[in-house]
């Protein structure tokens, strides 16, 4: 089951650029939360701070309190432990090119030293089913390379890979932006299913997508969070003028 995330005064820098400024919000468990905003507004940096991926870049830095359940991920744990609890799906599908479909999905377990074959088999099947990919690939799980699938299939495989470690939180950084409309709608259906069991944070620049899948939505602008509320409210009755400008397309 998912856990909620409490963010207080999160600041992040990229070199000398202050990309996130004093972000505070509560992301509820077992819901989908969407983050919208124009390119470069900090929404991607924000999700990358939630599993400490931000700091894999040597010039990046973050401060603040991020509580996942009751663990402060910047104080009480190291990045590797946090990332094992949090699944992440990236903007562009990034399968491991040398691995089969099976190995790709099992990679989070295998690379961490998990050896039980029976549980591995079961987990791979369950994850691929959950990612709605099982029927398409079940016949050549170990024969085909993960990189040989189509873009949309690759992205669903990457979701299955993230689900296989049984995470408590699922972070999705524009998961459908590189995909065609059919694949996009499959992924959206998937998110709708998955949010019953996972806390999902999804970054998107597609407002319809946010409206379709998320209960709550946050609007980011220039490194600040302008507004955070229920999706319905954000899209029908935003409090802030800038939010209204953005969602009505009057922005800039």
């Amino acid at each position: 089951m998912g856990v909620g995330i409490d963010v207080e005064n999160l600041n992040a820098w990229y070199g000398s650029t202050h990309t996130l400024q004093d972000i505070s919000l509560n992301i509820p468990a077992n819901h989908a939360t969407a983050l919208i905003g124009p390119s470069g507004c900090g929404k991607s940096t924000f999700v990358r701070c939630l599993n400490r991926m931000h700091e894999t870049n040597p010039i990046a830095r973050a401060t603040g309190i991020v509580k996942m359940g009751d663990v402060d991920i910047y104080q009480d744990a190291n990045p590797v432990e946090i990332r094992r609890r949090v699944g992440m799906v990236f903007q562009r599908p990034n399968p491991f090119p040398t691995m089969s479909i099976y190995d790709n999905v099992a990679s989070g377990l295998k690379l961490n030293g998990f050896r039980n074959r029976a549980i591995l088999d079961e987990t791979v099947e369950r994850s691929l089913r959950a990612a709605a990919l099982w029927d398409e690939v079940k016949d050549d799980l170990k024969k085909k390379s993960g990189a040989s699938l189509s873009g949309g299939q690759q992205q669903r495989m990457c979701i299955a890979r993230a689900l296989a470690v049984d995470p408590e939180v699922l972070l999705m950084d524009e998961p459908a932006s590189a995909l065609d409309p059919v694949s996009t709608s499959k992924i959206e259906d998937l998110i709708f299913e998955l949010k019953r069991q996972y806390t999902i944070v999804i970054v998107t620049h597609n407002m319809q997508q946010a409206a379709r899948v998320a209960e709550n939505t946050g609007f980011f602008l220039n490194g600040k969070m302008v507004e955070f509320d229920s999706t319905h409210k954000i899209f029908t009755n935003p409090k802030d003028k800038r939010t209204e400008d953005y969602i009505t397309g009057r922005f800039g």
């Binding site: 819901h31 209960e215 509320d229 409210k233």
Partner: peptide, 20 residues
């Protein structure tokens, strides 16, 4: 999932601690 989308009001979902 017991929660339904609430068309009005505050952010959905309960505070973190209750969910644990």
């Amino acid at each position: 999932n017991p929660r339904q989308t609430d068309p009005s009001g505050a952010p959905q979902g309960s505070p973190v601690q209750q969910d644990v």
